[in-house]
């Protein structure tokens, strides 16, 4: 073995390996070629083992040739590796491609019932004005449900509240949340700002706007200088919060035996905005609640001196509010519990 032979072998290794690298089908083949050519037990090492038979002056020359061969193979490997890597990555990415237009894995979503949700929303709005929530019994007595509210037995105004009676002595199903006014006044000292949500019952046939079970929210504010003007301001704020700012509101006389003066409170028609349409009976207004200044008889039954204290009360139906707000046309939907309806309120 002389220098020339070794140099030829090295050159053959270089040429053969670089050819093989160019033809390597994938990075694994490339890896194998690298090991075969440059590994510890590879061809280059094997060739250089013959270096011991050379004269010492030739040895550095062989080393130099071997280095150029190694560099050439490594750079060929690097070039080929990059191009094969690109191809393989592209293949992998192609392989991993999914139909992104398929729908997602659905998350179970529930909903909050519109009656309770409206009641909760009403409470949240009035809480901003310092009102606190109270609750009072659904099974009431005639005294609190009617008489203390200035509705004596056989009063013609009883026609406004057809009543369901129960087999508990002197008990009935409350027809409104107003008896809560009496209970709050008896339990608290002014200043009173109370909100009383809850279920009510009436002897009433069911149709698109009436039910025999429904919810109501009562409000009561009593202090030394609480005025009808305060009621007007507060309700106006409420309407803006509930139905959107800029909504016009209207105060007009109403009638309840337990308020004097009594008020009906209207908001501009949410359908037509004022000119009049079938939804508002051509008037341009929708009535959302009844209210008034607490009657002196009621204040007295609440244990308060009407010469010192005065205040207002209001009552509204969360279902009605919800119907107006969400465009629900039939009250019966609220207690039917069809999930396709409930899903509107997620």
């Amino acid at each position: 073995m002389n220098f020339a032979d070794l140099a030829r072998e090295l050159d053959a290794l270089r040429a053969g390996t670089i050819d093989a690298i160019a033809g390597a089908p994938d990075t694994a083949a490339l890896q194998a070629l690298e090991v075969d050519a440059l590994g510890k037990k590879g061809a280059l090492t094997a060739i250089l083992r013959g270096i011991g038979g050379l004269p010492p002056e030739d040895r550095p020359r062989v080393g130099a040739v071997a280095n150029t061969v190694r560099t050439a193979i490594e750079s060929a490997l690097a070039v080929r590796r990059t191009s094969l890597g690109d191809v393989e990555l592209a293949a992998r990415l192609a392989r991993e491609t999914v139909d992104v237009t398929l729908p997602g894995r659905p998350i179970r979503r529930g909903s909050l019932h519109p009656s309770i949700e409206a009641m909760t929303e009403i409470a949240r709005i009035f809480e901003q004005f310092g009102f606190v929530v109270h609750e009072s019994p659904e099974i009431e007595d005639d005294l609190t449900n009617f008489q203390m509210l200035n509705i004596p037995p056989d009063h013609p105004a009883r026609d406004l509240w057809d009543t369901l009676y129960v087999d508990v002595p002197d008990r009935l199903l409350r027809t409104h949340t107003s008896p809560g006014q009496i209970r709050v006044m008896q339990a608290m000292k002014p200043p009173i700002r109370a909100l009383l949500p809850g279920r009510c019952f009436r002897y009433e046939s069911v149709d698109a706007s009436h039910g025999f079970e429904f919810f109501q929210v009562e409000g009561l504010m009593v202090d030394e200088g609480t005025t009808l003007a305060d009621l007007k301001g507060l309700l106006d704020q409420f309407a803006q919060a509930m139905f959107g700012s800029g909504k016009r509101t209207r105060f007009r006389p109403g009638y309840y035996p337990f308020t004097e003066p009594s008020v009906a409170f209207d908001v501009e028609c949410l359908v037509c905005g004022g000119p009049g349409c079938p939804a508002c009976g051509r008037s341009g207004w929708m009535t959302i609640l009844g209210a008034g200044m607490v009657h002196p008889v009621v204040l007295q039954y609440g244990g308060l001196d009407p010469e010192r204290y005065q205040g207002f009360a209001f009552g509204m139906g969360p279902e009605r509010i919800s119907m107006l707000k969400h465009g629900i046309s039939d009250l019966r939907l609220f207690m039917e519990n069809d999930v396709r309806f409930l899903e509107s309120f997620r």
């Binding site: 700002r193 202090d223 003007a229 305060d230 301001g233 106006d236 105060f251 007009r252 008020v263």
Partner: peptide
């Protein structure tokens, strides 16, 4: 009733109570 002014209550608020 349209002549009734629109004011907000200026009387003190009641004490806090858990809802």
């Amino acid at each position: 009733y349209d002549r009734i002014p629109t004011t907000l209550p200026s009387t003190p608020s009641p004490a806090f109570r858990v809802s």
